[in-house]
Design a protein around this nucleic acid. Structure first.
Length: 569
RNA sequence: CGGGGUGUAGCUCAGUCUGGUAGAGCGUUGCUUUCGGGAGGCAAAGGCCGGAGGUUCAAAUCCUCUCACCCCGACCA
């Protein structure tokens, strides 16, 4: 490709609304342009990368034996009503009506569609197991689209759905997908980690997420520093303390704590550690309000809390008015002592003796509080906090550390959730109708492009992993339009590279060298040949890898072979 | 959805408080130069000041309404 025939829309300045590095670089490199909130056009440069990602995924999925299909993006409401998700999904589901006033949605995912297809097409156990995938545009009406393509509303996703007669077969395919995903992310040149995950509103049981490790990641993942354990913090269980609760040594007393509301303020004011305090959070339950008590230095895990039978879904904090009605005081002075609503206590908080808590009176806290004395001892402490770095690993090996990750893949064992709701059944060997078991496996294709940039960039721009670079080699002749023989030499090398199947981008613009260098570095082409009159005289081209500090000279006639060698290596 | 903010040239932004003929830098086009790191010079094109209504002799500027976009937001108890 010649730059003069390409749309190279690079920018020096950064559009004001880009926050994270991948968003800035994708805009500056001319990969994407925003149309509206969460909606992006892919320019030719970006699309080349997107297609590379897509093709690697397609290749590995095909190798795994999965079959590609292509389902409609727009889906009839009936199927969603049948699965029950039409009502469950909420405002994230973009709903539409056609001219006959029939209801549709723009698919955020395709469980209903594939299940409908399979129940019509597959009738015998002999056709199982089966795994179908597609690469499709999805739409989720996110509350707050941000970070460019990273959290867009419209995005490209690879989703696969497998069907099984037995749990064993489901597990086999699940494990195979786990391996396939690992190969895909490895080929994409990403530093990633598979972690245990919550199943969210897709439903089902067992689940892993694949995260690209990056500080800008929106998810926190907990992993054992010595063992194999890794899980999304949403899910990672906090190991309950094993030691029995100690004996009280203080008597309870109320102290004045004027204008001290946060744990930090109160603990500093009273000269105790946050871990010696408890915080009381009041949330909506299925029957009135419920108080949740956790240790002052811990944070609530809403995903875990929502799984308690007493807590209503979705997880919602009580409003200040509701809190006042139930406790008679403001948020900021709450405590478990004397509460009349149900109280659920985290394991670590239940372990405390002589602790500090709000007095349920404005400007007062209680010290020397003890379970089983001023407050009923929690009969069944619960796990409702986020794990912290240094907590014991749930598998008993080592302690946990926390890293940030970008979720790029998610695999689930759905079980019968959709197949039973939509009665997708086949006959087994004995002619019995068996409800299918399902697995589902997603990859955020467009998000991967952003994630790859988060992991691979420097002050000059993007540094593409070889396998997804939009072009392999940048060919930069210096002042070519002043030298006919340089132009001819550049053209010759260009043709030779093309014939060798190398994706070369020839900067044939009448630009100054600085502009060419800056552009090619910004758009992240991994290999660069620079040609000048001097090199021509002496029979070499200058080579520099995008990640190299130093350039080197390569004999002109060896240039193609040199690149091919680099690509093999 | 709640709170905050921003809409002026393709991009980044001044100008708005204090009303009086629309600005800069970058980019674009043409010419020029000593042309290996976004260089210099000359010239030019390009804006209903997000939209609608109002106040005024006069509105980018003041008022009202609207639309769009951005940021923050339940782990505070």
């Amino acid at each position: 490709m010649k730059v003069s025939r390409f749309l190279l829309s690079t920018m020096k300045e950064v559009p004001a609304d880009a926050e994270i590095i991948s968003h800035k670089l994708m805009l500056r490199a001319g990969m994407i342009r925003k149309l509206a909130a969460g909606l992006y056009t892919w320019l030719p440069l970006g699309l080349r990368v997107l297609h590379k990602v897509e093709n690697i995924i397609r290749d590995e999925m095909d190798k795994s034996g999965a079959l590609e299909v292509f389902m409609p993006a727009v889906q009839p409401a009936e199927l969603w009503q049948e699965s029950g998700r039409w009502d469950q999904y909420g405002p994230e589901l973009l709903r539409l009506k056609d001219r006959h006033d029939r209801e549709f949605c723009f698919g955020p995912t395709h469980e209903e569609i594939i299940t409908d297809l399979i129940r019509r097409e597959i009738h015998s156990y002999k056709q199982l197991p089966a795994n179908f995938y597609q690469i499709q545009t999805k739409f989720r009406d996110e509350i707050r689209p941000r970070f460019g393509i990273m959290r867009a509303r419209e995005f490209l996703m690879k989703d696969a759905y497998s069907f099984h007669l037995t749990q064993g077969s489901l597990e086999e395919t699940y494990n195979q997908m786990y391996e396939t995903y690992s190969r895909i992310f490895k080929r994409l040149g990403l530093n990633f980690r598979a972690v245990l995950a919550d199943t969210g509103n897709i439903g089902g049981s067992r689940s892993h997420e694949f995260h690209v490790l990056a500080d800008s990641g929106e998810d926190a993942i907990a992993y054992s520093t010595t063992g194999d354990y890794a899980a999304n913090v949403e899910l990672a269980p906090a190991v309950p303390p094993t030691a029995p609760r100690g004996q009280p040594s203080q008597s309870m007393a109320a102290v004045n704590t004027p204008d001290q509301h946060t744990i930090e303020e109160v603990s500093r004011f009273l000269k105790v550690t946050p871990a010696q305090c408890v915080k009381t959070l009041i949330v909506k339950g299925n029957e009135g309000l419920v108080a949740l008590v956790i240790r002052g230095d811990h944070t609530l895990n809403a995903v875990k809390a929502t799984k308690l039978p007493e807590i209503s879904q979705p997880f919602t904090f009580a409003s200040p008015e509701e809190v006042r009605r139930v406790t008679g005081c403001e948020i900021g002075s709450l405590g478990p002592v004397g509460l009349t609503i149900p109280v659920k206590v985290d394991h670590s908080a239940a372990q405390l003796t002589d602790f500090v808590c709000g007095a349920n009176k404005e400007g007062q806290h209680l010290v020397g509080v003890n379970w089983g004395r001023e407050v009923p001892a929690p009969k069944q402490p619960v796990d409702i906090r986020n794990v912290e770095p240094g907590d014991p690993s749930p598998d008993g090996k080592g302690v946990l550390a926390i890293a940030r990750g970008i979720e790029v893949g998610h695999i689930f064992q759905l079980g019968e959730k959709y197949s039973s709701a939509m009665s997708a059944k086949v006959q087994d060997e004995e002619g019995r109708m068996i409800t299918l078991l399902m697995g589902c496996y997603g990859i955020g294709v467009s998000r991967i492009v952003a994630a790859a940039i988060e992991q691979n960039h420097d002050e000059f721009g993007i540094i593409w992993p070889q396998t997804i670079a939009p072009f392999t080699v940048a060919l930069l002749p210096m002042n070519m339009y002043k030298s006919q023989r340089l132009l001819e030499a550049a053209d010759k090398l260009y043709q030779r590279l093309l014939e060798a199947g190398v994706e070369v981008l020839w900067d044939d613009r009448k630009e100054r060298p600085g502009v060419m260098f800056a552009d090619m570095e910004l758009i992240g082409i991994p290999h660069r040949f620079v040609m000048g009159e001097k090199g021509l005289d002496e029979g070499y081209v200058e080579y520099k890898g995008r990640w190299n500090k130093q350039a080197q000279n390569v004999p002109m006639e060896k240039a193609v072979e040199f690149i091919l060698e680099k690509l093999r290596g």
